[in-house]
Simulated assay, not measured.
Amino acid sequence: MTGTSNRSVERAFRIVDELAENGSGRVSELAERLDMPVSTVHNYLQALVSTGYVTVEDKEYATTTRFLEVGHRQRHRLEVFKAVSDELQDIAAETGEHVTLLVEENDQCVIVAVQEGPDAVNLFAYPGARMPLHAAAPGKAILAHMPDDRVREIIDRQGLVEMTKRTITDPDVLFEQLERISEQGYAVDEGERIAGMVCISAPVLDKGDRIRGAICVCGPQSRIDEARREEIAEIVQRAANVTQVNLDYV
C-alpha cells in the first residue's frame, strides 16, 4: 500500500512540475508529455483542482498561487532569511548589481531572496529557483563549509553537470577550490553557471560554524575587474558577518 501511495504522490508532482514548466496544458497534452494514461492524468488533475493547487479554464489546466503561498510561508520560517534583514538591499544600493540570498536544500542551491541594484543585469532569478551547488559561487561557498564526506555524497548523487565551458567538472579540482574558498572566506565563479557573468559570494555561518546560507553579488565580467572583485568580496563578507550576528536574535 505504501508503494502505491508513493507512486501516486510522485505522479501528482510530475503533473505539477509539468504545468509549472510549461505554464498550462490540456489533459491529452499532459498525458502525452508525461507518458501517462489520459484517464490517470484527468483524475489527478481533478484532485489537484479540488485542493486549490490547480485551476482549469476552457479545459486548460494551470497551477495556482497556492504554491506561492506555501513558498512564502516556508521562506519566513528560515532563520537566515529573517537574520539577513536589510543587508541585501544595502548591498544592491552599494554595488548596483544583482544580489541574492541562497540556501542549500536537497543537494541544490536555492534562491531565497533577491535584490536588484540600479545597474543589475536581469538574470531571471527568483525565490525558489534552483541551481547546482558546484557551478555557482554561493553553492561553492556553501560546499566549502560542509564536511568532505557530505560533499562527496552530493557529487555522487548529483554529479558535476557542465553548465558552461568554465564549469568545474573534475572532483579533484573542485575540492582544491573549496579549500581555497574556506581559507579566503568567499567564493568566485567566472562564467561557470552563466557565461559572461562574475559572481562573488560569502558564506553565512552560525555561532557553531554551521553553514546556513550564502550572500551573492553577480554582474557582467566587463564591469567587475580584479579590483572590483576584491571590493565586492569585502562587502559580501561584511554582510555575511552581520547576518551571522543577527542569527543569535531570531
Rank of each mutant, 00 (worst) to 15 (best):
M1D: 12
M1R: 15
T4N: 10
N6W: 15
R7F: 11
S8P: 08
S8E: 08
E10M: 13
R11K: 06
D17L: 04
A20F: 11
G25C: 12
V27K: 03
L30A: 02
E32H: 10
R33T: 08
L34N: 13
M36Q: 12
M36P: 03
S39L: 11
N43L: 11
Y44M: 09
Y44E: 01
Q46E: 13
A47K: 05
L48T: 02
L48I: 06
T51D: 10
Y53H: 10
Y53I: 07
V54K: 01
V56F: 03
E57A: 12
E57W: 10
E57D: 11
D58K: 11
E60P: 05
E60D: 11
E60Y: 15
T64L: 07
V70Q: 05
R75K: 09
R75M: 11
L78A: 12
F81M: 06
A83N: 02
V84T: 02
D90I: 06
A92C: 08
A93P: 01
E94M: 08
G96Q: 10
G96Y: 02
H98G: 02
T100V: 04
L102G: 07
V103R: 00
E105I: 10
E105S: 15
N106Y: 08
N106T: 12
D107M: 05
D107S: 05
Q108T: 06
V110K: 05
A113K: 07
A113P: 12
V114I: 06
E116W: 13
G117I: 14
P118G: 05
P118C: 10
D119P: 09
A120C: 09
F124G: 14
F124K: 15
Y126C: 09
P127R: 14
A129M: 11
R130D: 03
G139D: 00
K140C: 01
K140F: 00
K140R: 07
A141H: 06
H145N: 03
M146S: 02
M146V: 07
P147W: 10
D149S: 13
D149M: 07
R150T: 15
R152V: 14
D156R: 03
D156Q: 01
D156E: 02
G159S: 03
G159Y: 02
V161S: 01
T164K: 00
R166Y: 00
R166S: 01
I168R: 04
T169F: 04
T169D: 08
T169C: 12
P171M: 04
P171N: 06
S182V: 04
S182R: 03
A187M: 09
V188N: 05
D189I: 00
G191A: 09
G191P: 00
E192L: 00
R193Q: 14
A195C: 11
A195G: 11
M197Q: 15
A202K: 00
V204W: 01
V204P: 12
L205F: 02
L205D: 07
D206F: 05
D206H: 10
R210T: 02
R212Y: 07
C218D: 07
C218W: 03
S222F: 15
R223S: 07
D225Y: 08
D225R: 15
A227Q: 07
R228P: 06
R228E: 13
R228F: 04
E231T: 14
E231L: 13
A233S: 09
E234V: 05
V236S: 03
Q237I: 05
R238E: 08
A239N: 05
A239V: 09
A240R: 00
V242T: 11
T243N: 13
Q244F: 15
Q244N: 15
V245F: 11
V245S: 15
N246L: 07
D248F: 08
D248K: 11
V250H: 08
